[in-house]
Design a protein around this nucleic acid. Structure first.
Ligand SMILES: [Mn+2]
Ligand SMILES: [Mn+2]
Ligand SMILES: [Mn+2]
Ligand SMILES: [Mn+2]
Lengths: 217, 217
DNA sequence: TAAAAAATTTAGACTTATCTAAATTATGAA
DNA sequence: TTCATAATTTAGATAAGTCTAAATTTTTTA
C-alpha cells in the first residue's frame, strides 16, 4: 500500500496531466499547497517505486501503475461524494473535503460494495464520471457554455470549478445538474451571457461563470 | 485535531481502563503492537496536551478531555461497523479492520448524519453500545455465560472476543446476537457447557468460548 | 547568444512516530 | 530488608514528510 501523501501526489499529477503531457514541479506544489522542494523529494520516491516517469528538470508523467492507483483514488473520492449527497443529504458544495479523507480508506471490497449499494452511479455530484471497479470510465464530453452561440441549448451536466462559493452561487440561481438552458444573448462588451431556463426565467451570468458551467448538447 | 497515532493511543487507554484504574506502559504497548519505549514517548506528548494523567512509572489514566476524544472515536468505530454490516452486508467478523481506518474520518457532521441515516442504532454488530452525539451511552450489563448455572437462560447480546476466528465459529454454531439459550449442563471436569437453543438443539461449548459469549438475562 | 529571470534541485534542518540498547526505578521473594 | 527481576524510561538512530535558503539548470528576453 501507498502512504496518504503518495496517494495525494498521484491524484494531483493525474488531474494536472489532463492539460499537459508532462506536469511540472511547481504545478504540483501549487495544487497540493506545498513547496517545490518538497515535491522534488516526493517525485524521487514515486520514481523509485516506478509510479511516475521522472527526469530531473523535465517534469513528470504517471506510469500505467501510477495511473491505476490515481484512478482508484478518484473512484473512491467520487463514490463517497455521491454517498454523502444521495444518502446523507449533504449539499454538493459540502462534500469535497470529507471525500478527500475518505478516498484513502483502503479496502477495495468496501468500495465495491458501496458502489453496489448505491446502484452503480455513473457521475458524482459535480457531474464527473465515476470509474468502475476496473478503472474504466467514459471521458466526459462536456464543454463550457461559454463556447455556445445564441440560440444553442443543452443540459447542465458538470462544473469545472468545485469551490463552495461557485456551487452555492449556482444553487441559488437554480443552475443545477440536469437543468435545460438555452442561450438568449451574448453581451459583446464583457462576454457575459443571458440564458433562459426551462421555466422561461432569464439569468445573466458572467464570462467567468460561463467558463465553469459545463453542458451536454 | 489529533493525529491518527494519538487517537489510537487514547482509544487503547480507554479500553484498558475498564479493568484497572491506571493503565501500564506495557499494557498499552501490547494492545497497540508497539514497544514500551514508543509508548513512553507518546505518553509524554499526550500528557503535554492534558489528555492523560501521567506520572513516571505510575501508569496513566485519561483526563476528561482525553476520555471525550476516546469515546468519540469509539462512537465512530461502532457506527461504521454498523453501517458495514447493515447497509453493505458484510459479516460481523469482517468489519473491525475497516472501521479501524474509518473511525479517524474527522467530520462530526458526517458521523451525526450517518447516525441519523441508520436511525440511531444502539449497539454495534458485536453488541457493544454506541455512544450518542454527546458521548453518552449505557454501560452494558452483560455477563459471560460461564457465570451462569444449570437451568439459567437468557439472550445472547454480545461477545468479548472480536476475533474473526471466534465470530466465525459462533456464526457456524448459530450462536448469534439475539438468540435465546439455556444452560443444560456444566461439565465438572473442564467447565465446558452444554446449552440448548430455542429450537431445542444442544451445543457443547468450551469454557473458553463460554467466557467470551455475553448474555442479557 | 549572453545575461537575467524563472524553475527546479540540493543541502541542511525540523517534527512525528518508530525502534534497539542501555540505564533507571519499582517490585516481590528470600 | 536486600537483591534479582521485571517494568519503565532515556539515549541515540531511523524513516517519512515537510520547510528555508542556497545552488544549479532551464527558459526567456534583449
Ligand atoms: Mn471532489
Ligand atoms: Mn486526499
Ligand atoms: Mn471493532
Ligand atoms: Mn484506528
Amino acid at each position: 500500500m501507498n502512504t496518504l501523501a503518495e496517494e495525494n501526489y498521484l491524484k494531483s499529477i493525474y488531474h494536472l496531466s489532463i492539460n499537459a503531457e508532462n506536469v511540472s514541479t511547481n504545478q504540483i506544489a501549487a495544487s497540493l499547497n506545498t513547496k517545490a522542494s518538497s515535491v522534488t523529494d516526493m517525485l524521487k520516491k514515486l520514481a523509485d517505486k516506478a509510479l511516475i516517469n521522472y527526469t530531473k528538470y523535465q517534469g513528470v508523467s504517471l506510469t500505467s501503475s501510477g495511473e491505476k492507483i490515481a484512478v482508484n483514488i478518484i473512484r473512491k473520492h467520487r463514490l463517497w461524494e455521491y454517498f454523502l449527497v444521495e444518502k446523507l443529504k449533504f449539499k454538493w458544495d459540502q462534500v469535497h473535503d470529507m471525500a478527500e479523507e475518505m478516498e484513502h480508506i483502503s479496502s477495495a471490497e468496501l468500495i465495491d460494495r458501496l458502489d453496489e449499494f448505491m446502484d452503480y452511479p455513473q457521475h458524482d455530484p459535480h457531474g464527473e464520471p465515476i470509474p468502475d471497479c476496473n478503472g474504466r470510465f467514459k471521458a466526459s464530453e462536456l464543454k463550457p457554455i461559454s463556447t455556445l452561440s445564441v440560440h444553442d441549448s443543452g443540459t447542465i451536466s458538470g462544473v469545472r470549478d468545485h469551490s463552495s462559493s461557485f456551487l452555492q452561487y449556482l444553487e441559488k440561481q437554480q443552475l443545477t445538474l440536469g437543468k435545460k438552458i438555452s442561450i438568449m444573448e451574448i453581451v459583446e462588451f464583457d462576454h457575459s451571457m443571458i440564458i433562459q431556463m426551462e421555466n422561461k426565467k432569464e439569468i445573466h451570468i458572467s464570462r467567468e461563470a460561463a467558463n465553469n458551467l459545463l453542458i451536454a448538447l
